[in-house]
Design a protein around this nucleic acid. Structure first.
Lengths: 331, 331
DNA sequence: TTGTAGGCGTTATCAG
DNA sequence: CTGATAACGCCTACAA
């Protein structure tokens, strides 16, 4: 049966079923205007099952000019749990549609070299890819989905509105009576793009409420440095009483710094994070934070990719901002 | 130049360079016993650069009978940051050798169906794959690397000694004067395999020091439940004074529970975690924990995979246990 | 040292 | 409804 390579091919299936190899292909791909008798179909399917036939992804890709791979480019930042979780979930989701996710950091492989090589069915770019590259991919028949950070909702762009996050933080603080707001920036400069947008959202929200712009301080992942920042906010005049942290990690550092200098949350300084980290409920005090609701984002991304690849129109997505506030005790 | 498909092929390169397609292949693959004149080589390489030629992974895979994909099967557990980080790092590392990592949860795709389809160069199985499957993959020429949890150091098996982790925790507690040890198990039943091994390591270490076996309690990710467990340990006679947590997440929950009932660490109950989570330094008090040193593990895994695929012998690895103690304040 | 030719497993075209 | 047959792009004996 199996040729000398040991592989079960469609031809083997055809022989086993007593039909032509073409018929096997038709049955397996559910070719439309080809009426196959139920009996024939059955014979083929039985042979497939009996032989354990699996079509070769390589041969298929070669023939079709596109593989079943989905290439995802990640920003070259210290990917917090957020993005890794997103990758994890997206991979699971795409797999249900027969797609395989391959991730790559942007700086490692210059994109163009990789997509020409892999002929992916789709490419998902996180946040920064030149329009030129996108254009040439599209020209090559690759479906491109970009994840934008801003408030723009261009077609084919998955929006993860960073500005909304910052705004939501400010709103929570304002709603709980804080008038003078601080913003805790992460030390890592590679996060500045995200920071800029979140900060902008916070600024806008402050302006809308008639508050002064947030007082920006760096809070590196270091207790002593965080403590210094905490004191600076606390002793300012007028004092900052509520701080938006760039993310939960920064928030944890800040809370630790505050403890060191005897400041408590939310009494002396309210703190609100971003990410809803697994450990957020166990912070001292339990951390109020913004949840990205990744499941929603991933679902949306998967739908965009799958519908693009299969050519089906996507079931109109509600386009609700998936970001939500999780109130605990720190703010 | 480019054929109607828009793709630049090796034939296009050959035409551009004024040589045969065979020569192009020889140059690009550095075929040994083929003496290519430097002049010819140059012409080919220039043409490659000029045209931006990239070999088709699909065609290559079809011809060679193996792709440049590396398939990694993950255990179907709530993969903590530990494993996701490992995946991330491994992907980066393999990429340097022209390999592409594709991950899959075990329960989703029944393995066999996937490897037959993708013809991966290597498969990395995390923790649980039947010997039968491994055998058939090997028979198909796929290099298989398994990650074992136990103390066994079989060839082709990457050892991540869970028992050592438990032992190391106990040793730290014993070294700091604790005589009655507790073990905080995670609520999630899917972690029981890991738990069993870590616990076994802890038991053995206790026995070696002449201590009673650790007092095992479930510490779910819930402050109230964790508080109850803390009280139970604290009020036992003789009292448990030091607890090994299954991981940092459990440790954080336990510390939070202790705070609720007025118990402090390490005074009333010393706590030691596992994972060295990013947030561990910011726990209250800063969490003493065990670091898996993933970079070491990943490096080893990558070497095993790459050497297996390229057929080169692997540079003898020191086989030192990569696990190490990180002392902070909680134990 | 270089060129010719065949086939890896699929899908698609075109006759029967 | 089914059966030959031709690519898809690459590697590699075998010839020249």
């Amino acid at each position: 049966m199996a040729s000398r390579t040991g592989r079960v091919t469609a031809t083997d299936v055809a022989k086993e079923a007593g039909v032509s190899q073409t018929t096997v292909s038709y049955v397996l791909n559910d070719v439309p205007h080809q009426k196959i008798s139920d009996q024939t179909r059955r014979k083929v399917l039985d042979a497939v099952a009996k032989l354990g036939y699996k079509p070769s992804a390589a041969a298929r890709a070669l023939r079709l000019g596109r593989s079943d791979l989905v290439l995802m480019f990640l920003p070259d930042v210290p990917v917090g749990g957020t993005i890794t979780a997103l990758v994890e979930m997206l991979g699971d989701e795409l797999e249900r549609h027969g797609l395989n996710l391959v991730t790559r950091r942007e700086h490692h492989a210059p994109l163009k070299s990789l997509w020409r090589e892999l002929m992916p069915a789709a490419v998902m770019t996180a946040f920064e890819v030149s329009d030129e590259d996108v254009a040439s991919m599209r020209a090559a028949g690759i479906h491109v989905v970009s994840a934008g950070m801003g408030p723009d909702a261009a077609p084919g762009v998955l929006t993860i509105p960073q500005t909304v996050i910052g705004a939501m933080q400010v709103e929570r603080l304002a709603d709980t009576g804080h008038v003078r707001i601080g913003y805790a920036a992460p030390g890592d400069p590679r996060l500045r793009d995200f920071l800029a947008l979140r900060l902008e959202g916070a600024r806008t929200a402050c302006a809308e409420r008639g508050l002064e712009p947030p007082v920006l301080l760096d809070v590196p992942l270091d207790i002593a440095a965080a403590a210094a920042a905490a004191e600076q906010w606390h002793s300012a005049v007028p004092a900052v009483t509520g701080v938006c942290a760039y993310n939960d990690e920064t928030a944890f550092a800040l809370l630790a710094g505050m403890r060191r200098v005897g400041l408590s949350a939310p009494g002396d300084l309210a703190v609100i994070g971003v990410d809803n980290d697994k450990l957020a409920p166990f912070a001292m005090p339990p951390l109020t934070t913004i949840d990205n609701n990744l499941d929603v984002v991933v679902g949306r991304a998967a739908r965009m990719i799958v519908s693009g690849v299969t050519g089906r129109a996507l079931p109109s997505s509600p386009q609700v901002t998936p970001v939500s506030l999780v109130v605990r005790e720190s703010a």
